[in-house]
């Protein structure tokens, strides 16, 4: 379990330069376990890494929004997002896991399952 103090330090170390609300949501999720906050963290990190992000927050887009076709997400963006999420939440994803993820909802659900210790099924 990550403590609130650890989360605050990780926010300082690893989210420097990211929009402040991502750090706020991250700390809130660690403190309270509210998965809506987790969604905001994952999608906020993804949005920050997109070369051409949409003007509106990803969290406000339909969950069926496609990562590659609709958002122009490339493999480097996915890996950057993955690395940061792994560091923030102390999880490890396999090399090819995210290759099967195609939408925003699938992405968030994949991380949620890892964080809760469930085994993600093929999506």
């Amino acid at each position: 379990m990550i403590t609130t103090a650890e989360a605050k330090q990780r926010a300082v170390d690893q989210l420097a330069g990211f929009p402040a609300d991502i750090a706020d949501c991250y700390i809130a999720f660690v403190e309270g376990g509210d998965f809506s906050r987790l969604r905001q963290v994952i999608l906020g990190v993804l949005q920050f890494h997109l070369a051409k992000p949409p003007e509106q927050p990803l969290a406000g887009l339909p969950g069926s929004t496609r990562l590659v076709e609709d958002l122009g997400c490339d493999s480097l963006t996915m890996v950057d997002t993955l690395f940061l999420a792994e560091s923030l939440f102390d999880i490890r994803l396999g090399d090819d896991e995210l290759a099967r993820v195609t939408t925003l909802d699938e992405l968030v659900e994949h991380f949620r399952l890892h964080i809760t210790g469930s085994t993600p099924t093929s999506t």
């Binding site: 690893q14 420097a16 330069g17 920050f48 890494h49 997109l50 070369a51 480097l76």
Partner: peptide, 22 residues
Amino acid sequence: RALHWAGWRWPAEYSITKDLLR
């Protein structure tokens, strides 16, 4: 000083894209 480019700052007159920064 930050290890990740997200934490870097530079004068506003330069437009640097994320795909270049990384």
